[in-house]
Amino acid sequence: MRDPRAIALHLCAWAREELEGQQAALALLERQERAVRDRDLAGMETVSAELGKFAAKGQSRAKRRNHLLGMLAGIWQVPQRALTLGSVVERLGTDGKQLAQLRQELRDGAAQVMRTMRKVGALVAAFRRVTGDVVELLLTDEDGTSLTTGGALVDAEA
C-alpha cells in the first residue's frame, strides 16, 4: 500500500473508532465519578475493570495508528515523529478534507475526555488520601506504631 490516499482512508477509519472510544471513555468516567461520590464500592470496581479493558483497546488502536503514520512517513521521506494529523491533511490537499473534519472532532473529544479525567482523577486521589489516613489510624497501635510501616521482610536463608 504505497498510495497516500488509500492510507488516508485507513486513518479516517481509525479516527472514527477513536471518536467512539472517547464517548465510551466519557461514559466510564462519569460512572466512576458517581460511584466514588456514592461510596459505591462494587460500582467503582466494575468501572475500574471496564476502564482496564478500555485501555487495552486504546493501546491496540494506538498501535494501528502508528503503523499507518509510519507508512506515510516512508512515502513522504520524513521522520515519523514529524507527522501529525494536521501535517498529513496539509500534504493530502483536497484528498484530506474528510480527515481534516475528523481531526477537529477528535481534538474536541480528546479535550473533553482530558477535562473529565482530571476531575475524576482529582476526586479519586482525594478519596484515596483520606481513606489512607483513616486506615493508617485504624492500624496504628496504642504506642503509635503503624502496622503499615512497621517491620521488613528478611530472607531467612540468606
Binding site: 466512576q32 467503582m44 475500574s48 476502564l51 486504546g58 482530558m114 482523577g121 479519586v124 486521589a125
Partner: peptide, 13 residues
C-alpha cells in the same frame, strides 16, 4: 478501589 481507579485513569490519561 481508589488505587485501582487511579491507575486506570493514569493509563487512559
Amino acid at each position: 478501589a481508589f488505587g485501582a481507579a487511579s491507575q486506570f485513569i493514569q493509563i487512559i490519561n
